[in-house]
């Protein structure tokens, strides 16, 4: 039973990584990051079931709270980007070359 949850969690996490790397839209990238965080939450809750403790549930709650704060900031940045370039494509932003 736990294995199915873990596989799902890992698949979600990998989907998130692929999304961050391959997508060029800022929104999609931030959504992919949220997907990765939620994959971790799923793993936490599944493991909490295995260990029969409530710790994992509490930790998942904490992660959700932080993810919400991060999403708020991400949306503010998206608005800022749109003001500057009227586009949300990460390719447009290439002034800095590391």
């Amino acid at each position: 039973m736990i294995h199915s949850y873990l596989y799902l969690s890992i698949i979600l996490f990998c989907l998130g990584i692929v999304g961050v790397i391959s997508r060029r839209n800022v929104f999609t990238v931030f959504m992919s990051i949220e997907l990765m965080l939620n994959a971790a939450n799923l793993a936490f809750v599944a493991f909490a079931r295995v260990h029969e403790s409530m710790d994992g549930h509490v930790l998942a709650m904490m992660v959700m709270a932080v993810a919400a704060a991060e999403a708020a900031l991400a949306l503010a940045v998206v608005i800022l980007l749109h003001k500057h370039k009227s586009k949300l494509d990460t390719n447009v932003f290439s002034l800095l070359k590391g």
Partner: peptide, 28 residues
Amino acid sequence: STEAVLKYLMLGAFAGAFLTMGAAFVYG
């Protein structure tokens, strides 16, 4: 500076997601 914050936020949140996933595995 807007471009800098975009890059930093994207990669920083990515790293943060790795930290939570790591914490979940260690917890497991």
